[in-house]
Design a protein around this nucleic acid. Structure first.
Length: 282
DNA sequence: ATGGCGTCGGTTCGACGA
């Protein structure tokens, strides 16, 4: 049994298109590095009846999905071999599951939470999150984003009071600081970097969450998303908008946090690339 | 330089993403 777990998040921009890459990435990690014990996906863009449970099951992973046609959709994928013996199927792997922010009436599938009983440690509460894009500060979608952020914060406060081992991971659609933006001067006040969004991000940190990536020395100009246009990836014109935030108890045991750029170099990639945090077992 | 790309649904283009 390994003494740590690796949790990850990846906005796949259509699981239908990207399933082969998800499987390849998980297999590569198993073979070459350390297995990914849990992977939170965003932007499935498919309904639950189209979710590829069998393909992932055959690869050794069990899933819980909250899907939607065309847009949004989130999932949590867990490596079966990493689970405590009490877990045998989805109902015993994904404990206390929550779809959507309770009390926040929203048909957009952006939140999926569950407590995962990994072997040799207390269950970890994972929140797979796909934050609204916001479009632009003048847009109705931006107002929706800010209201959603408020609802998220208030719900997470409650979640944290009940779960001291919690990770919030996914596509936040917020670049927390100028160090997370390839050309901050071009982006001043715009969507993804506006003061309102950054303030909401700060308020999440003030709940007792830590941006795991910034706990460690990182290469400058590290990003998790690059625009498909204008050769964004080749120019490294990107942003760091995918994050893994950890509660105090998990932060204290976090050994590493990184962005794996490799899948972004593959044929027909997602515009986002996976982010990973490694957490020592208690 | 903000367009230009990718995905979807449903048709041959618009909405949306970030």
């Amino acid at each position: 049994m390994t003494e740590s777990v690796r949790i990850a998040a990846w906005n796949v921009n259509s699981l239908k298109v990207r399933l082969p890459q998800v499987l390849k990435w998980l297999q590569d990690q198993e073979k070459v590095k350390k297995p990914i014990d849990a992977l939170c996906l965003q932007e499935l863009k498919l309904t639950d009846d189209k979710y590829p449970h069998q393909e992932l099951e055959d690869a050794g992973y069990v899933s819980l999905a909250a899907g939607q046609k065309t847009y949004n959709g989130v999932a949590i994928i867990v490596r079966k071999a990493s689970l405590a013996p009490i877990a045998s199927d989805a109902s015993t792997t994904f404990l206390k599951p929550i779809r959507n922010i309770p009390g926040n009436v929203d048909e957009q599938q952006r939140i999926l939470a569950a407590s995962i009983p990994f072997a040799g440690m207390q269950p970890i509460r994972l929140v797979s999150a796909y934050f609204p894009n916001g479009q632009s500060p003048e847009s109705d979608k931006f107002a929706y984003k800010l209201a959603w952020l408020q609802a998220l914060e208030s719900w997470l406060k409650d979640e944290l009071s009940q779960n001291n081992q919690l990770a919030l991971l996914g596509d936040f659609n917020i670049a927390p600081t100028d160090a997370d933006v390839y050309d901050p001067s071009k982006w001043v006040g715009q969507n993804l970097v506006s003061p309102e969004e950054r303030k909401a991000f700060q308020q999440l940190l003030e709940l007792g969450l830590t941006d795991s990536f910034r706990m460690f020395e990182q290469a400058p100009k590290s990003y998790s998303w690059w625009d498909y246009r204008m050769m964004g990836f080749r120019r490294n014109a990107g942003m760091r908008i995918d994050h893994i935030l950890l509660s105090e108890a998990l932060k204290d045991r976090c050994m590493a946090s990184l962005i794996d750029k490799e899948p972004r170099t593959w044929e027909q990639p997602s515009d986002h690339t996976p982010v990973i945090a490694e957490i020592k077992k208690a």
